[in-house]
Design a binder for these strands. Sequence first.
RNA 1: CAGUGUUGUCAUC
Length: 309
Amino acid sequence: VYCFSPVINRLCEEGRVNEAFGLFEDMMTKHGVWPNVVVCTSLIHGLCRTGRWREARNFLGSMIRWGISPDVFTFTIVLAALCKEGRVREALDVLEQMSNWGIKPHVITYTSLIYGFCRLGEFGKAIALLDKMKSDAVPPDVITFNVLLDALCKVGRVKEALAMYRLMMQRSTRPDTFTYNILIYGLCHSGQWEEAMRLLDEMLHLKIFPDTITLSGILDAFSEQGMMEKARKLFEEMTRRGPKPDIISYNTLIKGYCLLGEMDKAEEVFEEMASKGDLPDIISYNTLAIGYIKADRIYVAFKLVEDAT
RNA sequence: CAGUGUUGUCAUC
């Protein structure tokens, strides 16, 4: 099983679930190896990820019939997949099923549910769960907080996110790069630049360093607000000192120029990526093409679409 | 280190 398991898991991760099941069958019939909860859970994960919920349910039933008991991983995986789809109602059913098996949810289980509630904009329920964690002696961790911070920022409740961040610090939960990426993104996009820079200092102080995502978030805020001189400056700084811009950073810069109708500059960046290692992707083409359409240069857009294919 | 949760770009919604 220990040999088959990683391979089956890899196939599931790549979405090659049918092949994974093929190997699973071979494992049992040709090699006489009896499955365990880990292999079965990997397969269930694969099914959930590809939206094959019915089969996931059935397979869960099968494994139980084979005398293989699902564990906290099994339930959490199904629950998290449902939450990601916004199907929190069904996720709660899984939670109940889980407790029928006498399995206690752990931090990842709760965090997934909180993510689900946030996705639906049900912040009250998300916070209630956070409180329940504390009373259940399942302490929220940095990811739990990151989920809440991100959801609050994304609906424009940045002030509450900052309050939550302070709460998290009070509980001595150490923030990570994600935490700051989320908050700085939220602050910059709501025009609170000074506060954003304050947080940037704070993260450096804790020896948590900005990465490409941090700076691309800022770059995007500059781009959306038409502050292209600053965007360009930041981009050049990234090129010189790092963290290095990646394809998304390029696309972000292109977007900024397109929004201002500065198509020459946008084109320049586009050309530049081709000469560096980052080849334009479908999003680069899309962004530029739509920019041209908005600038009433539809012919150029057609040409681009042609190039892209 | 055999399996689970969070962050940046276009369009769609």
